[in-house]
Write a protein that binds this DNA or RNA. Structure first.
Lengths: 179, 179
DNA sequence: GTCTATAATCCGATAGAC
DNA sequence: GTCTATCGGATTATAGAC
């Protein structure tokens, strides 16, 4: 059910997908789904929460490295991890407005935790003069937006490999923060 | 009707907004809207097409400037223009999947034309050795994603003015492409 | 040009049989 | 644990009065 909902929500949007469509993709009738989720909202929330927790569990935590090495590890991780989960990434960003206020707050807090990882790396690098950038918070927004944008155009099997993309984005990020 | 639809689509999403809601915001009954739009899909398409044409009409075209000056003008324009039209920008990105295939192709072509403006600046700057970046196409995606991300967090009246944000993003973009 | 009324269909969620 | 059937209400779009 979660896999079917993930694909349908990513393709058509949460509001445009009915429980009957999800049931049909699973191969059951709509009523059967309610043995596995309280309602449609809970299904969306579970998908988003699981994704955000997966990201947080997988992001490298290597305080022994230099700020530049930590930043490179973050850039390569973000691109690779998000590339493997395009539907989850898309939903986690596009369907925020379809969460109830309580659920929204929980997802937002998880997202802020992830951004705080990058912001911490940047702030330490600024303090140690490894990086030359005016504001760690703005640089965090800029870098994450840049990296997440890869998912909107990159498809495996084209002119560039994922490693090529990681290399080029790392070069641009490194220069942009003066590392 | 267009203003009401714009705000409602941006807030709740195209699929989640009914013609009755739009009519209510305008102050008429739902049937009256069909004197101004053929159907709901045409209303979405018109909003997106108008926005993309507005962007293309407003983007600076100054071939007499140096590549670095052109890039700076593009960065400042993109941030300022998109800041003034948050609903249009949001819809133009989020509701692409709710367009019919024919309408989608038209909007995509307009979007590609806009990206081609930036890509042309970058390609000329690479050819003239004003910029040091591996691939103009990837740098285009990276810069546009970074700049469009401003809309997700920047609100006027906070710690930073729009001019501050333009300055900081221009510094990061300039360094990232080696200008 | 706006209204009311309605056609035809779909929705989320639940009840109860098995 | 899945099914059928259903409740109460929503939807887009149209028809025809005024």
């Amino acid at each position: 059910m979660r896999t079917a909902a993930l694909q349908l929500f990513a393709e058509h949007g949460f509001a445009a997908v009915s429980m009957r469509q999800i049931a049909s993709a699973v191969g059951v009738q709509a009523g059967a789904l309610y043995n596995y989720t309280a309602d449609k909202q809970s299904l969306l929330f579970d998908l988003m929460k699981t994704h955000m927790q997966d990201v947080l569990a997988a992001v490298p935590d290597t305080p022994h490295l230099t700020p530049t090495q930590q930043l490179e590890a973050f850039v390569r991780f973000h691109i690779a991890f998000h590339h493997r989960r395009p539907e989850e990434v898309f939903i986690a960003y596009m369907e925020l407005r379809n969460l109830t206020p309580d659920n929204f707050e929980i997802i937002e807090e998880l997202r802020r935790s992830y951004e705080a990882r990058l912001q911490g790396i940047l702030a330490r690098g600024i303090a140690s003069d490894d990086f030359a950038v005016e504001d760690a918070k703005i640089a965090t927004f800029a870098v994450i937006a840049m990296l997440t944008g890869v998912n909107t155009w990159f498809k495996e099997g084209g002119r560039l490999s994922l490693a090529d993309v990681q290399d080029q984005y790392w070069h641009m990020v490194r220069k942009s923060v003066g590392a």
